[in-house]
Design a protein around this nucleic acid. Structure first.
Lengths: 234, 234
DNA sequence: CGTGTAGTTGAGATGCGTCAATAGTTGTGG
DNA sequence: CCACAACTATTGACGCATCTCAACTACACG
């Protein structure tokens, strides 16, 4: 199954045909490039797990489309704590930032292949063709919605609600909705949800005791009661 | 669900949500009546304090520029709790949303005047003149950054850090940076920061005891030690 | 087999939420 | 001007969810 992802695509919650944890399906470079939607100028790049794609403060010169793997964008605080803004999976586009410099850094969660697409920023915008302009605007609006939903998730919600929502979201972006292979560590999840690893771990164990999920291994989650998860997430 | 932007002028009557815990005021002006084309000033609309500008679920047909007053965008949760996504002040633009429907509602915090600018959405984007396209993209990227920073603020930060950052932000958007007149209630602040009104109130009192700020009245804050606030916010 | 990293579990501490009482503010009407 | 009501904000006491610290387990890798 090819990556059918379009920049002018659907609602943000639409299920994506993306491999969340594997290279099992990895498409050819040619196909990925033509499907990516960001134009002809792409070059495929590879990053090892935990390597840095760009840093907070770097000049902001490209947009990236993920071919395979998972990417996190994050910020490091003065006290050493890290906060994760988003996870991106195959088919997703990331790298939008307002100014000439990144305000977040992007890192590979596991081994990642992606296509970089140079963009000349807002200044040059409009000189490009219309379809391109629409795609970029559409993608940035989708990012905006994602970010808003993340903010809502972080405000005054219990650990159960956060973890349940996280699992629901990830499963909707995974090829197999009921058998979820998490690419990220507990620390990553904790930093994304504004919790500690201990709380994430305890909450997952509790969900397993409830028979809402089953933890085949630490990073493999089977969703047994999707409805219960959804209700928790509300 | 596909995105559908309409050029049709008639306004969709949306299901009105009863304002949680409060009176619902009728807007003093019909909303979304501006005929203005993209890029031209529309007519000025007025909204009384606490009235609704648009609702979650309304059709997304306009962008708004604030002439005077303060606007909040928010979401109501099933348990009746409200979460505020953003405050907008004079000069700010709001109303950006990815799809054809709003996913947040917008309300006047105090009496508000604003200019509605009909926009024909992503579909028509790029057909307009370049300067306008740049302006819209630029504003939506600014919104994205604001939302990301809000998410970072809500994740794993103490009440002190949240309130300090809030005061710093608001003072930077206010005409007089050291004498801040808050348009919003404690409840608004709490719903924005993911705290309770009691915690907001206690934190402000504590900051006053520290002589970091001075509360001339409940909604008038003098910033005495900006550096201390900034350090707290880190 | 030892070492290192990731994850789980437990016990205790604490920051914030909850509930409740009090105080301040605004508006209305006599 | 005062009295009163309604609303908004402050303060206190207490409980609980989550954090912190620490021990332990599981698994990968040389």
């Amino acid at each position: 199954m090819p990556v059918s992802f379009s920049l002018v695509a659907d609602h943000v919650t639409a299920p994506r045909r993306a491999a969340a944890g594997g290279k099992a399906w990895a498409p050819s470079t040619e196909k990925a490039r033509s499907d990516a939607g960001l134009g002809q100028s792409g070059q495929v790049l590879h990053f090892a797990a935990d390597s840095e794609i760009y840093a907070d403060g770097d000049r902001n010169v490209s947009l990236y489309t993920i071919v395979s793997g998972v990417v996190r964008t994050c910020k490091f605080r003065s006290d050493g704590r890290r906060q994760i803004d988003a996870f991106y999976v195959a088919g997703d586009i990331f790298g939008f930032e307002a100014g000439g410099e990144h305000t977040l850094s992007a890192e590979a969660v596991n081994d990642v292949s992606l296509i970089a697409c140079r963009w000349r920023g807002v200044e040059a915008f409009g000189a490009e063709d219309e379809r391109m302009a629409r795609r970029i605007l559409s993608a940035s609006l989708r990012e905006l919605r994602r970010s808003q939903e993340h903010a809502l998730l972080l405000g005054r919600r219990s650990a159960f609600q956060k973890v349940a929502t996280f699992l629901t979201d990830m499963s909707e972006r995974s090829p197999n909705r009921d058998m979820l292979d998490l690419a990220m560590s507990r620390q990553d999840i904790a930093d994304y949800l504004g919790l500690t690893i201990e709380t994430v771990s305890r909450t997952l164990s509790q969900l397993e005791r409830n028979e809402t999920i089953s933890l085949t291994s630490a990073r493999r989650v089977c969703i047994l009661e999707r409805a219960a998860l959804r209700d928790l997430g509300l």
